[in-house]
Amino acid sequence: MREEDKVLLLCDLLKVDVTAYLDRYIEELRTSKIYLQVCAQIIKLRKHDYFRNIEIIRRFEVIDFSKIKTFLDFEKTYAEILDIALECQKEKMINPLLSEEKMTLGEVMIPFDGRDITFNDMLLDERYTKTYKINQVKEIYLNYRKEVKTLLISPFVEFLRKEDVIDENIKEKSTITALLSSVILANIIIIILPLFPVTTLRNIYSGTIDSEVVMVTFYVLIVILFLLDLVSIFFYNVYLNKFRIFIRAYNSLRSEKSIMVKINNKSEAFYSLLLRHIDEIKPLNIPLKKVSLIDVEMKNLLYLIEIKDKLPYLQEKWKVPHFFYVVCAIFYLALLAFFLVIMLFLGGHL
């Protein structure tokens, strides 16, 4: 950091007006070597939808030069750019528990005895004792775990704090699911009824029954059911598609314990694997995919956590749209018509 930058920062902190310098500094930063390097790296990172890349890109996209109003803001932005640049440079210094790179565990770079070497180099280096390697690997593993806690467990735990709101939403979701299931069930019943070997029933379907009342009621039922199907499909597409994210949350919540257990088990298994290979002095030719905690399920969950602030469903109680009541009303009409047909049928066609 240049000395004059320090003076300007100090001026800013002491409420001395230095805004006249700010535009020049922002422009300098925007065209600086470090920022341009970061931009180039981000383009590369966008090619792979890895968890680590997404995290770096997210941090990069938050940078907004137009929001810099003070020198403190400026220096914070500069620090963030430096930090992102640093992350980009650590391309091979990845956390195997959080990575999706197509490489083997043995190729992952680690800081070891003041140098950056791969896991395999460390394992096969006979100059170091097993105890020394175990101590170093323990440090490395603990750092990995720390990162897992920050990037995976903490947001998840934070997410679960909204459980009360989600509980309410789950009830709503259950009601809607029950209604839609009933609609499907009603359709199935109407379809399979003529399969029963009951002559009168088949006569209703073929329209050869002599009671006009039953026939009219039956046709009304069919029309209402058809209408209900149409309205339900429309409702599902328009409203429930928007609700899909919430359903994911619901499903993720249900497997809350299993996710936590999975994180812990996989982390411990990874550590045991490292220790075993140190003991056996064997290279780690295992694909990263096998030890990584990031799979499709986890990515969905992380995606959910990432966008949670944008989801009204997770922020407040989900409000059932008015259209839902139309579906309910038609459903009850269909139900009424159905029972009427049954009653008429059982009552000897009146």
């Binding site: 320090k6 920062l9 300098e28 070597k33 390097q37 500069y78």
Partner: peptide, 26 residues
């Protein structure tokens, strides 16, 4: 407070600059 914030920022930036070994273009 102002000194503490100043020193924290300077330390943070200088540490990162050192790590990056890539100073801002003037």
């Amino acid at each position: 407070q102002e000194i503490s914030l100043f020193e924290t920022m300077v330390h943070l930036i200088e540490q990162k600059e050192k790590e990056n070994d890539n100073l801002r273009k003037v």
